[in-house]
């Protein structure tokens, strides 16, 4: 039985193999759509992108559009976070880095030491949005000062410590964890002006914005914040809180973010590695990114740049592409 048994034993493997083959051989990728791309010729190659999980969905949406125009260019998108993305970017591992904040000086130094030259391109805006549980509807607007007493170290445990007009309901906080760019940004905007470095530690931290939304939804007295995309999807289960940066209460919206009146907006960037722009597919993708970003950005929940700001970004990409040739 020895020989026969062994060859029989190989059967399931042949099966798995043929399954894998037939699946991988696959049919042709979707036919190219209307060619709005900047390049007429068919390009191919891999583009490596990593970085912010906030910018990730935007870049993914652009890649989806791009794959209809240039099906042979594969965009590999990771989401290691803004900091993790820059680490890989400055090690020369990626062509483009997504970022929800400008590059830090020490990160730029790393890039410089490794000989990675880059171009910073602003692609859109995110509005951090604060929400409360509907049972906490007396909180309609918070000033920077109130936020410091709420979010700062030794923060308020009942709402009347934030503002004497509020009832003495207990405070529960659901917010992004320390690895998040959202957390960094909120601390910098709210706490840094009062020379406070660290926020309170006794809150429910999560890297998943859906978990934050669910936590606030299920807890009376809960307050928290997350990106605009999640705020838009949250609907009636959560109550929006306006922010008063000193010039009156402003609600987060596309308009208030664009005209700058809402104080909790943050820029979204892509960083292009100049050397990679000498590859036609990377240059074409970067150009395509800015030609398409206005059409898709609202569908992924972020706020478009004003036209003149976008034109500046487009010019920056064009210059960088020209310089790389």
């Amino acid at each position: 039985m020895n020989r026969r048994t062994l060859s029989r034993a190989a059967l399931p493997f042949a099966l798995v193999l043929s399954l894998a083959l037939s699946a991988c051989g696959g049919d042709d990728p979707a036919a190219p759509g209307d060619s709005t791309g900047s390049s007429e010729e068919a390009l191919s190659g891999d583009i490596e992108i990593d970085g912010s999980s906030t910018v990730g969905p935007l870049t993914d949406a652009i890649s989806e559009e791009y794959s209809a125009v240039q099906p042979d260019v594969t965009v590999n998108l990771g989401i290691s976070g803004t900091g993790g993305g820059f680490e890989r970017f400055c090690a020369g591992e990626t062509d483009i880095s997504n970022a929800s904040r400008p590059i830090k000086d020490e990160e730029a130094t790393l890039c410089e030491e490794a000989g990675v030259e880059f171009t910073e391109v602003r692609v859109g805006t995110d509005a951090l949005s604060m929400v409360v549980n509907p049972a906490t509807d007396y909180v309609t607007c918070l000033t920077t000062e109130e936020l410091v007493s709420l979010w700062g170290p030794d923060g308020a445990t009942t709402w009347d410590q934030v503002n004497p007009d509020f009832p003495s309901d207990p405070v529960e906080i659901f917010a992004p964890g320390v690895d998040s760019g959202t957390y960094d940004f909120f601390n910098e905007t709210i706490l840094a002006p009062s020379d406070i470095e660290e926020p309170r530690q006794d809150y429910n931290a999560s890297e998943d914005d859906n978990v934050i939304a669910q936590g606030i939804e299920g807890t009376p007295g809960a307050w928290g914040y997350f990106g605009f995309a999640y705020f838009q999807e949250a609907g009636a289960a959560l109550t929006a809180v306006e922010y008063d940066a000193g010039e009156g209460c402003v609600a987060p919206s596309v308009e208030t973010a664009q005209d700058g009146s809402y104080g909790l907006t943050r820029p979204l960037f892509i960083y292009l590695k100049n050397e990679s722009l000498s590859r036609p597919e990377v240059a074409d993708y970067a150009t395509f990114y800015l030609d398409t970003v206005q059409d898709v950005i609202e569908s992924v929940g972020y706020i478009a740049e004003p036209e003149d700001a976008l034109a500046e970004s487009q010019a920056a990409v064009a210059d960088a592409v020209e310089a790389a040739k």
């Binding site: 051989g25 890649s63 998108l77």
Partner: peptide
């Protein structure tokens, strides 16, 4: 190092 998103097939 698996990527979050790509639009191409893998083959062994």
């Amino acid at each position: 190092g698996a990527v979050f998103s790509r639009r191409a097939d893998n083959a062994p």
